[in-house]
Amino acid sequence: MTRLLSNPCLRLVAAGIFAIGLACCSSPSTSDQREAGSISPQAMADALHAVLESDRTVYARQVVHRLQDQEEVILASEHWQDDKALPLPAQMFRMGAEMVANKTDAFSYALISKWPVNKQNEPGTEAEIVGLDSVANNPSAAFYARESLGDAEYFTAIYADVAVSPACIACHNAHKDSPRNDFELGDTMGGVVIRILLTE
């Protein structure tokens, strides 16, 4: 051991590891600003959205757009089971949301739009209606509200859902059920609603 530590390079590494260990054990890091359980609903919603939006973008660009439009390997289809195709980005998103809703009612998320292909995705609650307008006008600012639905209170956040890939607009503009067919790359096509349950 001592022989090993005489190597200056290894000494440096060992010191580094020791320092990290010390930092992990005693560091104030973020845990004293936000103790367990005290993260604000807004921070929670923003964090969830960061994950959802990134996954959604990766799927649209690196899976659907790449394989369907660029490399022409496999199509994305609404009837992906019958067509042995990729699920659409919106279906991918909803399947995840449904699985989450089966596990917990602490939070939920959905994809909605004022110009929905699927009418079930049009805004339903007051907050959804106001929120979609808000993010359509100002895509970079999220919309936040409190809602009471059924017997429960929610913190509701709505974020712009933007046409991040040519696949988004090509498909929506051509879809026979789409009420709008002039989407352009970068347009807000709808919104992601995230709800955090406030009441027990």
Partner: peptide
């Protein structure tokens, strides 16, 4: 049933 768990359906479910 998984389609209706989202709180946006609370009113319909009532």
């Amino acid at each position: 049933p998984e389609k209706f768990n989202d709180p946006r359906y609370a009113e319909d479910l009532a």
